[in-house]
Computed example of a mutant assay.
Amino acid sequence: MHNESAASYAKANFENLKSYKQIRLFPNEKIETVFVKEKWGFFDKLTIISSLKKDSIRQDFLVANKRNKNTPALYLRDNDEDFKISGGTRINGDIFIPKKGLKTITIDNNSFEKPIHNGSVFNSQKVFPKHSELTIGYPENYELLDINEINEHSVINGFNEITKVIEVNTKLENLKLKGNIMVTSQDTLIISSSVILEDVILEAPKIIFQNGFEGSAQVFASKGVIVEPQVVLKYPSIITVGSNHIMEKSIIFEGESVFSGLVFMQGGGLSLEKQNTILIKEKAELTGEVYCDGTLSLYGIVNGSVFASALVHKTTTTAYKNLIYNGHILVDKVPGSFFQDSFFQPLDSEEILFVKKI
């Protein structure tokens, strides 16, 4: 009962908890409760410790804002052109698009499907709303390991232990990693299908999830991420590519890949719009939120929301700007209890969600 009360208190007072707070929830009880608030990648990590004499109970949670039901299906920057849908495109939910409006076009005479939008239409702004950069932030104390020093097939590190940082040359394989672990590489990091990950943070210039991988992770890359076919990145996963303004950057979801969480392409404004790209191929299915400060090509399914500075559909001969061809954005398919980035939070949404107990 006390643990439930402590969790309810944390939700109601989360913004005021800061990094450390010790209180007695009930004046007539002798139980002391400590709240410790830290970052774990994208998420806040909340630790609740309730103590009575020499006995204590500890709980750790990943915390984020709860998704607001009024979040739109699509936000597309106003670039003085109309927004076009074609083929089997389906959009369920409100959309923010350029002032020139929504247009249905036919570009494939062999297509017998008609594009559909169900929802209200609003005007977007000419400047794509910016987001503060998502960074990892290393803990003050951690244990640094080389992958070659690990002889076990499984490394499980609780969040009550010091963070383990594992350095990998190129490929991670035949290993289970769970909990308070960060994996880093100075080169392209390849995640084999033989790897099992849960709650782990990955950091490298480029990260590739090979065909058949299944697990959950927070991914921080500076150049790009490739999610191959038959990959399943479970809730609550994060993919973010940094805002390096020099190089081209990309996130690619191959067909039959599955993802649940947040996809975040950080850009550098309109001048770099074309070099920051996300490609969601046919039969790829994402649940959650896609933020692209760059150019998005959507042919698969997003069960959630899409925020993009630009959209493009490319054929062998032509590039169609502001067009979604055969892609689906279904904001009504997001599970009821799902986290949300703070980029587009309606004014009435400040509810805290305990995303996962870790």
Rank of each mutant, 00 (worst) to 15 (best):
F213K: 12
G212E: 12
E161Q: 15
L233W: 11
V241A: 01
K171H: 10
V165Q: 12
T184H: 07
V225I: 15
L197I: 06
S132W: 03
L144C: 03
P139A: 10
F213Y: 15
K206T: 14
V227T: 11
S132V: 09
P229Y: 06
I136R: 01
A221F: 02
A217E: 03
T163K: 04
N148V: 13
K178L: 08
K206M: 12
S185L: 05
K234M: 11
I252P: 01
K223S: 08
E161W: 06
D146S: 15
L189T: 04
I252L: 13
L197K: 00
S132R: 10
E152N: 13
V155T: 09
G158W: 01
D199H: 12
E167L: 11
K176G: 10
T163Y: 05
I239Y: 00
G212F: 11
Q230S: 13
I252T: 14
E152I: 09
I208M: 04
E143V: 14
N160P: 03
S193A: 15
L189M: 08
L233G: 07
P205N: 01
L144W: 09
E133H: 07
M182N: 04
I166L: 09
V183P: 01
E143M: 10
V219E: 00
Q230K: 14
V241L: 04
F209N: 09
E254M: 03
G179V: 07
G255H: 04
E254K: 13
I238F: 14
E149V: 10
E140M: 08
I252N: 12
I207Q: 01
Q230R: 10
E149Y: 08
N151T: 14
N211R: 13
S243G: 13
A221V: 05
I196R: 04
V183E: 01
N244V: 11
E140W: 02
Q210K: 15
E173I: 04
V225K: 01
N174D: 14
E173H: 10
P229S: 14
S192A: 14
H245G: 08
D146A: 13
S154M: 11
V241K: 00
I156A: 09
I246L: 13
S193Y: 05
T184W: 01
T188E: 06
V241W: 01
E228W: 02
L202Q: 02
V231W: 05
V219Q: 00
N151L: 11
L233R: 09
P236G: 03
K178R: 13
G242Y: 03
K234V: 07
E149G: 11
I190K: 08
E254P: 00
N148W: 06
S194A: 05
